[in-house]
Write a protein that binds this DNA or RNA. Structure first.
Length: 399
DNA sequence: CGAGATTCATGTGAAGTATACCTTTAGGCTTAA
DNA sequence: AAGCCTAAAGGTATACTTCACATGAATCTCGTA
């Protein structure tokens, strides 16, 4: 038997998981604990769909990992089950945050059309043409109602404008056979302030707030899921408590807690440890954070990478705070070295703002009086990750 | 000494430009009756 | 004559640039105590 065979054979025996997918974030369990009230609310708002009536638009707030998406999916799935024979209902889910997929008005519509079975080119069409196409497809479809779930809608509105929401709700008046129900999901509780009166009136006819889970609730969730996901005696109570504590610190993010547990399991499995131990949780915490950031950095376009790289280098030199101007000068040198066209300072300023939004840096505008006004930039990621990130950028930029 | 004017370096908004891509249209070519 | 292909024309979204004005506290100015 070859070495590889041994490795392959041992995988099955050694595995700590029974059903790993239960811990994955897109898994939707039968029971959603501690969200009964919210689920009931969602359901009661959407229930008239079963009769083919257009219901109120729905607006859902809550921080990440508070079960918003899950609850909505749960309710819509049940609705679909009920409505199945009559084909009156259709549900489309779209995450507005996905870069390059759904972060502009045009792309959101294009993505919706694609999901409904049509196709639109990536560019070139006027936006109102795309609207028309969307209308057309809606009119052709058999279903009387379309429930449009727009996740992270605050991101979209921040980038586009609240016109978009208004347009969406206005579509209904131009439709004869079909009606749209918009379900907006927002992580930002201040989202309402951003949309104007007109959009507000038409969009948030109903609102539901999802509170964060507390540590006890998180524990219960983790316990339920881990029972199904892991084999017996892999996870101890202490481990679950620790996961919950970690996640509770992050404003009760259940998704985070589940990821933590899953990754910890993978780590333990990899070192052939039959139990998950405390250290695995710590390692998993690092790994998740690291992977998330590295993934962002890796997929960012070259110019963004260059800007980030110069921030890294300036930070490691550490001569007090670093400011937009410093970054831009350093960036220009880098451009020369790599032989890439330089962007203007205006644009680089915007790029820095985008990194701020992504949470990789903290940039706040300060005024140094006579010495002008600028952004003070600080890295928002731990030193260990910066080193890895620099490594990746070194490779990607081919110094 | 202190109120108000000045100043700096960039923030920020709006408008313009380049690029890549789309549809429409007209002309040229092929094909088949 | 009908059908098909191709290229040009006219149009758009997006990423970026250019232009112009806004900011806000350290610093300067100058009148006053």
């Amino acid at each position: 038997m070859s070495k590889l065979d041994k490795i392959f054979d041992s995988v099955g025996k050694r595995s700590l998981f029974k059903e790993k997918k239960i811990l994955q974030s897109n898994y939707s369990p039968e029971d959603i604990p501690h969200r009964d009230k919210q689920i009931e609310q969602v359901a009661s708002v959407l229930a008239p769909c079963l009769l083919g009536e257009k219901t109120s638009n729905l607006f859902i707030y809550g921080k990440t990992g508070t079960g918003k998406t899950l609850s909505v999916q749960h309710v819509t799935n049940e609705l679909l089950k009920r409505a199945n024979e009559e084909k009156i209902l259709r549900v489309e889910y779209l995450n507005c945050k996905l870069k390059k997929v759904a972060d502009t008005e045009y792309r959101i519509l294009a993505e919706l059309i694609k999901k409904m079975g049509g196709s639109v080119p990536a560019t070139g069409l006027p936006t109102d043409q795309v609207y028309l196409k969307f209308l057309e497809i809606l009119e052709k479809s058999d279903e009387k109602l379309l429930i449009l779930v727009l996740d992270e809608i605050d991101q979209a509105v921040k980038k586009i404008s609240d016109e978009f929401l208004y347009n969406l709700t206005r579509i209904n008046s131009e439709l004869n056979n079909t009606q749209i129900i918009v379900v907006g999901i927002s992580n930002d509780l201040r989202f309402l302030d951003m949309i104007d009166q007109r959009g507000r009136r038409s969009l948030s006819e109903e609102e539901i707030v999802f509170p964060p889970y507390n540590a006890l609730q998180l524990q219960e969730i983790l316990r339920m899921r881990s029972d199904g996901a892991f084999k017996d005696k892999v996870v101890s109570d202490g481990v679950i408590a620790k996961c919950a504590a970690f996640a509770a610190r992050e404003h009760g993010d259940a998704r985070r807690a589940l990821d933590l547990l899953r990754v910890a399991g993978e780590l333990a499995e990899r070192e052939a440890n039959p139990k998950i131990e405390m250290k695995h949780i710590d390692n998993a915490n690092d790994k998740i954070e690291r992977d998330k950031i590295l993934d962002i950095i890796e997929t960012e376009p070259k110019q963004f990478q260059l800007v980030l790289y110069s921030i890294f280098e300036l930070t490691s030199k550490d001569d007090g705070g670093i400011y937009t101007g410093d970054v831009y000068m350093h960036y220009q040198e880098l451009c020369k070295r790599v032989n890439i066209d330089c962007l203007t300072q205006r644009r680089v300023g915007d790029i820095i703002a985008e990194f701020d939004m992504l949470g990789i840096i903290n940039a706040r505008v300060i005024s140094k009086g006579r010495h002008g006004r600028m952004r003070e930039i600080k890295l928002a990621i731990p030193e260990s990750i910066v080193e890895r990130a620099k490594g990746i950028l070194d490779g990607a930029l081919e110094f």
